[in-house]
């Protein structure tokens, strides 16, 4: 970030009065990037810097004084270790399930002639547009007390729907996460499947390999970059989910904890420090992930 800004600034000095084509080009790049950099500064850099200050503020309502008590709480209180563990295993597990199912769905889209394929693709992409709170309602519509699945099971088993409802448990939350993540994974994998070399698959089949071996030895290596990209995308997305957890509860993950420390006692320093750890972690995951995949794949 800082290298980019520095570069833009030093370029600006040379490009105020361009004389060569190279200077003019620099000025163009600067002019094209300037609006974005202004937005990033106003809406991201300055607020994030303020949040660093906020986390070590002595006062809850204003940035005054200096205190590291929020960071100490974060480091020592076992509650936060539990929150961190919850957040990580849940994001990892939901991502793994979503990507696995996404491979199956995009495989079916790419290899089998499904009826109404265009409509089906739109259907799979539909949940990408839904905010987390609406996804939570989708889980309630299936697994809540008045949910379709709950009532169908209740009807056939004779039990009460209230005992059977799982929407507000970890199971319900799991379904909610997968509901958000699976469409994103599928859309990335669909792009990868479009580039798979079908000649190699046909050759493997012609040489006598069964479909499972063909998939494992030929198709899977080809779609591996897509799997990495989809895993990274879903993991990052899972970490940022908030609305779904706010409605369904079920598990105390970091985003829920942030909103709780704010609504109970407005412990803004703790909220800010969780937020910073979170942001730093997402940034680290992204850059580590970028090393293991082509930058081009990640853009999807």
């Amino acid at each position: 970030m800082s290298t980019t800004t520095w570069f833009e600034l030093s370029a600006a000095r040379d490009t105020l009065t361009p004389e060569t084509e190279r200077d003019r080009r620099r000025r163009r790049i600067l002019v094209l990037c300037a609006p974005f950099l202004v937005l990033a500064a106003v809406a991201a850099f300055v607020p994030l810097a303020t949040m660093i200050r906020m986390s070590v503020s002595a006062d809850r309502f204003a940035n005054v004084g200096f205190s590291v008590s929020a960071w100490r709480t974060l480091a020592t209180d076992p509650l936060y270790r539990r929150v961190a563990v919850n957040t990580l295993w849940f994001a990892a597990a939901t991502s793994a399930v979503s990507v696995t199912l996404g491979v199956a769905v995009s495989h079916a889209f790419a290899k089998y002639s499904l009826p109404f394929e265009r409509v089906l693709v739109s259907v799979v992409s539909f949940p990408i547009a839904l905010p987390g709170i609406v996804v939570a309602f989708m889980v309630v519509a299936l697994l809540g007390r008045q949910g379709l699945v709950t009532n169908a099971v209740a009807f056939f088993s004779g039990q009460g729907p209230i005992d059977l409802a799982t929407a507000t448990t970890v199971t319900g939350l799991f379904v909610g996460y997968v509901y958000s993540l699976l469409p994103r994974a599928t859309m990335v994998l669909r792009g990868t499947y479009a580039e798979v070399n079908t000649d190699a698959e046909q050759a493997a089949r012609a040489l006598g390999a069964d479909p499972l071996r063909t998939f494992y030895y030929v198709t899977l290596p080809e779609i591996r970059p897509g799997i990495v990209a989809a895993s990274l995308l879903t993991f990052r997305t899972a970490l940022a989910i908030f609305g779904t957890v706010l409605v369904l509860q079920g598990l105390n993950v970091a985003t829920l904890q942030i909103s709780q420390v704010l609504s109970v006692g407005y412990e803004s320093q703790i909220a800010a420090s969780i937020g910073l750890v979170y942001f730093a972690f997402i940034l680290a995951v992204t850059f580590v992930g970028l090393r293991y995949t082509e930058a081009d794949v990640i853009r999807r």
């Binding site: 980019t4 303020t50 940022a240 937020g275 997402i282």
Partner: peptide, 24 residues
């Protein structure tokens, strides 16, 4: 490359940006 990463990846979750906005 840096600018590209910054521009195409949603790096700050909405809830965290919200807290930061409240104080800024």
């Amino acid at each position: 490359e840096w600018l590209n990463t910054l521009a195409v990846l949603p790096l700050v979750p909405g809830i965290i940006l919200g807290i930061a906005f409240l104080r800024t």
